[in-house]
């Protein structure tokens, strides 16, 4: 059981959100909690299946940030077949992220 964490851009996100379950992490390179979250997500990826885990740079994907109403980073949104299921702001630990993935 494992998935890979990969970085995408806003356009790719549009395609991806409609394809099953996706966890998107809006991050910034200037943010300590975001850096830590990137390691937590890698850890989470080892323990889950059936979900895409992707990261998107808050600072260079303003259109996506606006489209999804992301106000701060890090923000994680879980989509299921195009529908937003859960949104969590701030750094979270592995068990909480596994829980929101569901």
């Amino acid at each position: 059981m494992a998935v890979e964490v990969r970085e995408i851009n806003g356009e790719e996100l549009e395609q991806l959100v409609n394809q099953g379950k996706v966890l998107v992490d809006f991050y910034s390179k200037t943010c300590g909690p975001c850096k830590m979250l990137s390691f937590v997500l890698k850890d989470v990826a080892k323990s889950v299946d059936g979900v895409e885990i992707v990261t998107i740079d808050f600072d260079t994907n303003k259109e996506a940030v606006e489209r999804y109403g992301v106000e701060s980073y890090p923000t994680m949104i879980v989509f299921s077949n195009g529908q937003e299921v859960t949104r969590v702001k701030g750094l979270q630990q592995k068990p909480k992220i596994i829980q929101i993935i569901g």
Partner: peptide, 9 residues
Amino acid sequence: TFEKGQMVL
């Protein structure tokens, strides 16, 4: 004292 955005544990 850390710069904003540094990751510290």
